[in-house]
């Protein structure tokens, strides 16, 4: 429906709206800093516990503390990026419930882009910073060589993973077009996915592995690329190209979710009132 040219115009306007929203947010600087600081503290505490555990245990499924920290960093960076770009989309269920979504449909702009910039918040940049920090610590401490190819592919993987998490958050919004009941179940895949992505996937039971590889491909964003980055063996014995599936898996997932969004918009009936 949207031609590529329209899309570009949309994005320019969207960028302007996003900048405005950010500027508005910055008027409450101490509140903003407080939130960033808060997120930092909560995550830092979790890393402290992880470190404590490794003082008593030798390894986690053959992975050292440094390697697990690398995985934590990678997963946190992806999650925080995906979360940040979908802040507005995450607010769609509220808009629908209050009957405020209708105005989106009468504006000459892609409904998804509009929803994205409906709410722009940097409250999770703290998580992004922390993720990058852990990633850097992980990269510096693991014994594996960092080639240009690895670094370049890591950027691709981060973008893919961020897209996957953004798509997961979008699923919640899509479901809310029909019901706002029990959409919290999607949390198991957004927050749960980011949690699972922080650990080597082969330590989980079969059902969990299949779920988070082939249904929600978090494992192809964090674990498999990391096998290549860290030169680790694959105890699950998947084909050798598996570490490089991240962009393909993310593309497929996003296309399916995008179709879902279009379908939802077409079948939307306002709550009225």
């Amino acid at each position: 429906m949207d031609s590529l040219f329209d899309m570009r115009a949309d994005l320019t306007i969207a960028g302007r709206i996003a900048a405005l929203r950010l500027r508005g947010q910055m008027q409450y600087r101490s509140s903003f800093l407080m939130q960033i600081f808060g997120n930092f503290v909560v995550n830092f505490a979790e890393i402290l516990v992880l470190w404590s555990l490794f003082q008593h245990f030798e390894d986690m499924g053959g992975w050292s503390l440094n390697e697990v920290i690398f995985l934590h960093g990678l997963s946190m960076v992806m999650f925080s990026l995906g979360d940040t770009v979908t802040n507005g989309v995450q607010a769609v269920p509220l808009l629908i419930r209050d009957g405020n979504f209708d105005r989106t449909l009468v504006r000459p702009m892609s409904s998804y882009v509009q929803s994205m910039v409906n709410e722009v918040s940097l409250r999770h940049v703290g998580l992004l910073g922390q993720g990058l920090l852990l990633l850097a610590v992980g990269m510096a401490t693991v014994d594996s060589e960092w080639t240009l190819a690895k670094t370049a592919y890591m950027l691709v993987v981060i973008v893919s993973g961020a897209a996957l998490f953004a798509a997961l958050f979008t699923i919640e919004a899509i479901l809310s077009f029909w019901t706002v009941n029990s959409i919290e179940a999607v949390n198991a895949f957004t927050y749960g996915g980011s949690e699972l992505g922080q650990y080597p996937i082969h330590i989980f039971q079969r059902g969990m592995r299949l779920l988070f590889l082939y249904v929600v491909p978090v494992g192809f964003m964090t674990y498999y690329p990391s096998l290549y980055f860290l030169d680790k063996p694959d105890p699950l014995g998947l084909p050798g190209f598996s570490p490089f599936m991240a962009p393909i898996a993310a593309c497929v997932f996003c296309i399916v979710v995008g179709r879902g969004w279009t379908f939802a918009i077409r079948h939307y009936r306002s709550t009225g009132s």
């Binding site: 499924g61 749960g192 330590i203």
Partner: peptide, 22 residues
């Protein structure tokens, strides 16, 4: 959600107890 998180955390501890080098 509680179930999924319970399974994950329990698996992490099992992996630590079953650590390969020990």
């Amino acid at each position: 959600v509680n179930g999924i998180f319970g399974i994950m955390i329990a698996s992490v501890f099992l992996a630590l107890y079953n650590s390969q080098s020990s």
